[in-house]
Design a protein around this nucleic acid. Structure first.
Length: 821
DNA sequence: CTAGGGTTAG
């Protein structure tokens, strides 16, 4: 398929009229189709992607040609007509040998895996397994393949190994396989499971599952045989490493159930080694990542019961697991225990290992996560004094500063600890992550100028930006809707720095542009603004396709958002693009995320039936989609309907009908409560508030505000009953348990006091809704945006504070004889 | 075979 070139002479879409906007969309779709065809061509008929690279040399004939020759030969020899399959098999076997033999001569040859697969399937289907000679030929063909795909040391790609594994499964379906083949396959898998960079989740799942099946076969002996001439070069029995590799594979894809099956297999197998601290470390990591503190504790108890002596790695895994479970103090007490000086260590029965640099860095990460800058700094000072410091320490300390919004401190840490000059052999500068994070943080704070400054600073200090850095800086530009600059930077990134943007890069840009759109005030000709935003989004999307970056579900939902925000909603275009993407197998249009955006779009277009239809079609509806549906009904004024939907769903839970039940969250109730209050139904709002708490859902700041703000204005206009006052007091009491930025709650309290003492229309009440902080975050708009100040604290005058801190820690006049790098 | 850093996300 010929690649369609991007027409760069095209006008900027911002200046476009509606007519040629249709042209843009068609163009986008056209490019899209071209892109898809290229993709499909590569994936055709295969469950796996073998032909991602251009074929350099065509090997042998096509399968059809082979079948044809067989027919020709058979026809020419009537004596063979008595269905002499052995001869056919012989021919096919020779063809396989021919195709596989190229392996040794030229590594640049791309195998025709599809053709080989066809031939093997034909062989397997036509052979007579009762005939010894035929059976031997079949297995000989398989051996020809496996000896290449699993050869050691491997110089083949993951695709080759993947093909070998597929063929092994095919072989198992027609007979037993040699034990040595299993061990060989496991060894090959090992190599690719160790370095999983660049592999998709599906590939990693395939690896773990394949490895498990092989392991299972090796443990049980089912479907295995041991040939007489045993290959002496091959590992003979299983050792702990084999189990740990598979275990780690499952933990890394987040499948703990399978991980525990591996452990069970290991424990059940007679001559397998028992679970060691290594296995425990892997499992602890897995449960920690899931935030399953109970699982972590159970593992620790089990290790103790089995008299396991944990090494430093297992302790570090534990510290990290505690941190991942938000149990930083638990992590710290373990860390302190390890640090304690034990003078009579020899006398102790179980001496604890000494913490190493990784223990310290992990602990530092914990303080960063807990936003405890003071502890982070004092630990960092201790590390510097003990000469325990590396680039991860710098990066982690910077992330702690950023987490506490101490940007000036982040910059001074970077100024002091950036590795200069950097001569490492690694692909990237080790501190690029810290700079990237800082750019991202400035961007999130709406501070494009500083984000750009840091980006320039990196160049000055020889810290080369990578894909992540570009993503962050272009996200920052997108938030300020600087499309021309973004396009320039994209070109620079691709052509000068030779970095290929990822789907995340493009999603960040699209999300940023749309976010800015959110901030546009309604009215004042904003339909024009919305349409310009949508055109820019489509423009970037087109660039994405032209760069051959495959869009995903997030991309699709962002496109829906962009077009859905338009006035009027460009729903037809939206549907066309999404169904095109669906037809080409890129996304599932019934994906919950895409559908949620569609529901919002329908809601904006006042098409409530469309919203309901979309929800009903979702393959796995979730809370957020459900909430969007409720919002749609509420926004269209059908609160009664929204309540009915909620009730029906609630009853499903009572009936324990888990199939279609969607769980509620605090947002579900906030939507219902705020629209009930909008029509002055304080009684029902109060009922819902209590139902929420009865369900074990505690109100957050958004829920509290959704009650207090409208209740206060109701109090000002129509007055409140005693019951209403009780409701407010209850909510206020809940609110006091939460952290609020600035004076928010105090003001509300004051306003409520005034109302309940009968005084109306006080000037302090009116000013409530004009808090600039809330305005910036759209706080005043009661909609389904809830996490309105996720960690955003007004920037303090942090510079003097930091200097004081550094002064008090004597960091400003550190012993200069100690050079870190 | 096991432990510590970054970008997007209804």
């Amino acid at each position: 398929m010929e690649r369609i070139k991007q027409d760069s002479s095209r006008n900027s879409p911002i200046l476009m009229t509606r007519e040629n906007r249709t042209f843009v969309v068609s163009l986008v779709l056209f490019l899209f189709l071209a892109h898809i065809c290229t993709l499909v061509e590569g994936f055709q008929g295969a469950t796996v992607s073998y032909n991602r690279f251009p074929r350099i040399q065509k090997l042998g004939a096509t399968s059809d040609e082979i079948y044809n020759s067989i027919d020709v030969i058979s026809a020419r020899n009537p004596s063979l007509k008595a269905s002499n399959r052995s001869n056919d098999l012989q021919i096919l076997n020779e063809e396989i040998e021919k195709r596989m033999s190229h392996a040794n001569t030229d590594a640049t040859i791309d195998y025709d895996w599809e053709g080989i697969r066809d031939l093997m399937q034909h062989i397997v289907k036509t052979a007579n397994y009762k005939n010894t000679q035929e059976r031997k030929l079949v297995h000989d063909s398989f051996r020809l393949i496996s000896s290449q795909t699993f050869r050691q040391p491997t110089s083949l790609s993951w695709d080759a190994v993947k093909f070998g594994l597929e063929m092994m499964e095919l072989q198992v379906s027609v007979g037993s396989i040699p034990r040595s083949l299993c061990l060989q396959a496991l060894k090959s898998l090992n190599i690719f499971m160790r370095n999983t960079k660049g592999l998709s989740l599906a590939d990693r799942q395939f690896q773990a599952n394949s490895a498990f099946r092989i392991l299972q076969r090796l443990c049980t002996g089912v479907g295995l045989h041991i040939p007489k001439e045993q290959n002496k070069n091959v590992q003979i029995s299983l050792d702990e490493r084999d189990f740990c590799m598979v275990l780690n594979g499952f933990v890394n894809v987040g499948d703990l159930q399978m991980a525990h099956r591996v452990v069970a297999l290991q424990c059940r197998t007679d001559n397998a080694p028992p679970l060691s601290p290594i296995g425990y470390s892997i499992l602890i990591k897995g449960h920690g990542r899931q935030g399953d503190i109970q699982g972590v504790d159970e593992l620790l108890a089990r290790a103790k019961m089995n008299d396991i002596e944990p090494d430093i790695i297992m302790y570090n895994s534990l510290i990290d697991a505690y941190i991942n479970c938000d149990e930083v103090s638990k992590a710290y007490s373990l860390f302190k225990q390890l640090k304690e000086l034990r003078p009579s260590q020899e006398e102790q029965e179980n001496p604890l290992p000494t913490p190493n640099l990784r223990s310290y860095n992990t602990m530092l990460k914990g303080f960063a996560k807990a936003e405890d800058m003071e502890s982070a700094l004092s630990l960092a000072k201790e590390m510097e004094n003990a000469k325990l410091w590396d680039s991860v320490t710098t990066n982690t300390l910077v992330s702690a500063a950023i987490a506490t919004q101490n940007f000036a401190m982040a910059e001074s840490i970077l100024e002091r600890y950036t590795i200069i000059p950097y001569t490492g052999k690694k692909r990237w500068h080790p501190n690029v992550e810290a700079y990237t994070q800082l750019i991202g943080a400035y961007s999130l704070n709406g501070d494009l100028e500083n984000a750009k400054r840091v980006f320039k600073l990196m160049k000055e200090r020889g810290v080369d930006p990578n894909e992540y850095t570009y993503t962050a800086i272009m996200g920052a530009l997108a938030r300020e809707w600087q499309t021309p600059q973004i396009k320039k930077l994209l070109l620079y990134m691709k052509n000068v720095d030779a970095i290929i943007p990822s789907v995340v890069t493009y999603n960040a840009i699209l999300a940023g542009i749309i976010e800015k759109n959110n901030y546009q005030e309604e009215g004042d000709g904003s339909d024009l603004v919305y349409n310009k935003v949508a055109d820019d989004v489509l423009d970037i999307f087109q660039d994405m396709l032209a760069t051959s970056v495959t869009p995903n579900e997030i991309t699709a939902s962002l496109l829906v958002d962009a077009l859905g925000y338009c006035k009027p909603s460009r729903l037809d275009e939206t549907r066309n693009i999404i169904s095109k993407m669906d037809e080409n197998g890129l996304v599932n249009s019934n994906n919950a995320r895409i559908s949620t955006s569609m529901i919002r779009a329908y809601s904006k277009a006042s098409d409530i039936a469309g919203a309901q239809r979309t929800f009903d079609a979702i393959s796995e509806p979730d809370t957020i989609a459900f909430n969007a549906l409720l919002s749609a009904y509420c926004d269209s004024g059908s609160i009664r309907q929204a309540m009915n939907i909620y009730r029906n769903n609630f009853n499903l839970a009572e009936l324990k009908n888990g199939e279609s039940y969607v769980s509620h969250d605090v947002a579900t109730y906030t939507i219902l409560i705020s629209s009930l209050l909008k029509i002055g139904s304080t009684q029902n709002a109060s009922k819902m508030y209590n139902e929420m708490k009865k369900e074990g859902i505690s109100p957050d700041t958004g829920a509290i505000d959704a009650v207090l703000t409208p209740m206060i204005s109701l109090g000002n206009s129509v007055g409140l009953t005693d019951k209403d006052i009780n409701f407010i007091s209850e909510v206020l009491a809940d609110g006091r348990k939460l952290e609020w930025p600035g004076e928010y709650l105090k003001r509300k309290e004051k306003a409520i006091k005034i109302i309940s003492s009968g005084r109306m229309r006080d000037s302090s009440i009116e000013s409530l809704d004009e808090d600039p902080l809330f305005k910036r975050k759209n706080w005043n708009k009661v909609d389904s945006g809830f996490k309105l100040w996720g960690g955003i604290i007004p920037q303090e005058t942090s510079k003097p504070v930091i200097d004081e801190f550094l002064e008090s820690k004597n960091w400003n006049d550190m012993d200069s004889s100690f050079r870190l790098f």
